[in-house]
């Protein structure tokens, strides 16, 4: 069985806390050992650079929207995050509607 959950977390004193809902799911499945890949904000900034989003843009968004720089990085990381696939199709179906829930 292979599961994959992605989330943002603070690393303090060498500890990363799982979001409660993920911890609960792992507990339900009896999973106690995980393979962990750490992705840092710096890596996210490198990914953003491929979209033409530089550090100046991140700083400007943080300043204009009154966000922490890390949050601004996350927000800009959302650009194109659903560029293809089923989620993209459901989002695009919303575009022309006037408020109904996305089609299943």
């Amino acid at each position: 069985m292979s599961l994959r959950y992605e989330f943002f977390a603070d690393a303090r004193d060498g500890r990363i806390e799982l979001p409660p809902e993920i911890a609960a799911r792992l507990r339900l499945k009896g999973i106690v050992r995980l393979a962990v890949t750490v992705s840092t904000v710096a890596e996210e900034e490198a990914r953003l650079a491929h979209r033409g989003i530089d550090t100046a843009m991140i700083d400007r968004v943080a300043a204009v929207q009154s966000l922490d720089r890390d949050v601004a990085t996350v927000v800009l990381g959302g650009e194109g995050a659903a560029a293809s696939g089923e989620l993209a199709a459901r989002l695009l179906a919303l575009g022309k509607s006037s408020g109904g829930a996305a089609a299943t």
């Binding site: 994959r4 959950y5 992605e6 989330f7 809902e21 968004v61 929207q65 966000l67 949050v71 601004a72 996350v74 927000v75 800009l76 990381g77 959302g78 650009e79 995050a81 659903a82 089923e86 989620l87 459901r90 989002l91 179906a93 919303l94 509607s97 408020g99 829930a101 996305a102």
Partner: peptide, 21 residues
Amino acid sequence: EIYSAARDDGERRTVEQALFG
């Protein structure tokens, strides 16, 4: 409306990235 397009936690986190801003 944006959340209504998401079908699971992963997709909800994806759309949240935009809404956080």
